[in-house]
């Protein structure tokens, strides 16, 4: 078991998969000679060459489409979009082709396509570099959407995504590439479906994903130490398909639910979890579930305003205390 950074986990997954299968290749802006904006492909250009580690022009829709086409006839591309905001430009190829080709061909054509995108709000990057697009991807039939919260899952989810015959979008986070964590030395695969219990608890279930898992874990520690509240933290991890049974199982134990998301609330992960709680375990609830989420504004540049727009661990603590009345 070695301690690695998030970006190193992604790099290791690339390297192992590319070494194993000559039809696995990577493409994206600045991923080759420059080594990738977040170093997640560093060294691969020298090792595998320009045919398999491709520096693309700034043409997101068409290089995404080239990846989709390559996948349809047997290759396994890993397409990196430098920032999730730029993925809007690739939505036609992703939605109309990657997500639908298997279904509309009656199962005759598979599309083992992987898109990696750093999402989320970093530090004062402004509204056009701070988008969180999980709500868009998770609304599309035919896609799988996963979000690693740890270096271990950054590695394990990419490994699974490359082997999976369905198109997979992996949402990473701009602020998490240097996050450290343990990754087993032996090869492993993180499931592309199902939740993971990050902390066992009995008083309240905190549902989170990606960076908000860390807010939830920080909050849970503080709640235990300072308020005697035993919170369970669930990493949703797979946003599509979402693990309805896993969500309900935790609530059957705690009878209270809070959802924490970095995104603004309308039409998102939180609203989807709320709907699942209603549909799966309404009568298990002892309190109305609550969402902790970003404000519904384009992310402002000013640091103070930016911080005010995005929730944090303190907001989670406050929401839990309010719900439990202590």
């Amino acid at each position: 078991m070695a301690e690695m950074m998030y970006w190193q986990g992604i790099l290791r997954a690339h390297d192992e998969e590319m070494a194993r299968d000559p039809l696995v290749f990577a493409m994206g802006e600045d991923i080759g000679v420059a080594g990738g904006t977040y170093k997640a492909t560093s060294g691969l250009f020298a090792k595998y060459g320009e045919q398999r580690v491709i520096d693309t022009p700034i043409s997101e829709n068409s290089y995404t489409g080239i990846g989709v086409g390559a996948a349809m006839v047997g290759a396994r591309p890993i397409v990196e979009i430098m920032s999730v905001n730029f993925a809007w430009l690739a939505m036609d190829q992703l939605m109309n082709n990657a997500a639908k080709i298997h279904y509309m061909s009656g199962g005759r054509i598979r599309c083992p396509f992987v898109m990696r995108v750093p999402g989320g709000t970093a530090h004062q990057l402004g509204a056009q570099h701070s988008a969180r697009m999980e709500k868009v991807f998770m609304g599309i039939s035919g896609l799988r959407v996963v979000t690693p919260a740890t270096p271990r899952d950054a590695y394990g989810l990419l490994k699974s995504a490359v082997r999976c015959d369905d198109p997979v979008v992996i949402i990473e986070h701009e602020s998490m590439y240097n996050l450290k964590g343990e990754i087993p030395d032996t090869e492993f695969f993180t499931p592309l479906e199902g939740v993971e219990v990050m902390r066992q608890g009995k008083d309240v279930s905190i549902f989170a994903y990606n960076i908000s898992v860390h807010w939830a874990l920080d909050a849970a520690q503080k709640l235990a130490q300072e308020h005697g509240i035993d919170a369970e933290v669930i990493d949703l991890r797979a946003l599509k398909p979402m693990d309805r049974a896993g969500i309900a199982a935790s609530v059957r134990k705690t009878h209270r639910a809070i959802v924490v998301e970095e995104d603004e609330a309308p039409v998102g992960v939180g609203s989807e979890v709320m709907a699942i709680l209603n549909e799966e375990c309404f009568f298990e609830l002892d309190a109305a579930p609550v969402r902790v989420h970003a404000l519904d504004v384009p992310i402002p540049y000013n640091r103070r305003l930016e911080k005010a727009a995005i929730p944090n661990a303190g907001d989670v603590v406050a929401a839990v205390r309010k719900m439990l009345g202590r």
Binding site: L23, Q51, V68, A70
Partner: peptide, 18 residues
């Protein structure tokens, strides 16, 4: 989608090349 197949065709060619 008009123009959608252009990159797909290039993608088939990319796999042929590999």
């Amino acid at each position: 989608l008009v123009g959608g197949p252009f990159p797909l065709a290039a993608g088939f060619a990319k796999t042929i090349q590999l």
